[in-house]
Amino acid sequence: MHTFFDILQILLIPLASPLITGVIKKLKAKFQNRRGASVFQPYRDLWKLFHKDEVISQDASWIFRLAPCIVFAVTLAVGAIIPLIDLATFAAPAGDLLTVIYISAIGTFFLALAGLDTGSAFGGFGSSREMTVSALAEGGLLFSFLVLALVAGSANLFSIADSILTTGNFYLQPIVLAGIGFFIVLLAENGRFPFDNPATHLELTMIHEAMLLEYSGRRLALMEWAAANKLFVFMTLGANLFFPWGLMHTFSPGALAAAVVIFLLKIAALCLAIAFIESTIAKFRFFRLPDILFVSFTLNIVAIGLIK
């Protein structure tokens, strides 16, 4: 039975992630009083891209060619070691919050290198901005997890979820503060508003997209897919660590059903939140972004102060 869940754990993230982006797009369209594309549109986009030819810059090296695989593999790896539905999977022994953060940093590293590799001016500043944002987001990300770790007395993600689940919401305020801090980082790391516009066509304001301008065909598909994976991973982390209710402790059909339903509800709520934010505020000027990220960091510091 466990094997089944293990496989499910590994496959769920990549299989479901395009749907998440589709849902967010759909919700955004609704906010704009549009019908919008189908929630399955991202699957179609990927499917189409996988069937197209590729044009690769003649200046690109193996970094550019291998980066999609690495970036995608990294999201897979991170997806495999976070609590998704089941708290008792094979993935628990791999590591802790630092492992998750730093493994996902590998993806950022190669994404940024790929942006630089072709020598395109857009890719270059895309990388520069991406690294700026992610460097500044790291403090907030780490500290929001640290708040949880301090509450739970363990830095292992499964133990954190487990501990918060079993001890109840005794530390409500710190967790909420850390949750807000984490949400800001989620937006930053995944290139959402107000940090980046995922649907922009203007090269000069791009961050994430600018690094992908050179990609085409199946490598582009892999990159887009990896980005969707990453978003899903972050949403899962947010949903399952800060609000771990519904996670399955021991297997039973009822618990599984409840776990899946509650998980989906949480994700849906997060999608709604992201879509709401993206429809109601404008993208910030680049040099205002650090302020938001420092807000995230500060919130977490306050949260630590509240615990102590």
């Binding site: 200046d59 090296s61 630089l116 690294m131 403090g139």
Partner: peptide, 18 residues
């Protein structure tokens, strides 16, 4: 940690890429 990552993207990119 974050800034070091940025710095080595810069270093490797500027020296070896493009």
């Amino acid at each position: 940690g974050g800034l070091a990552l940025a710095c080595f993207v810069k270093a490797f990119g500027a020296v070896f890429l493009a």
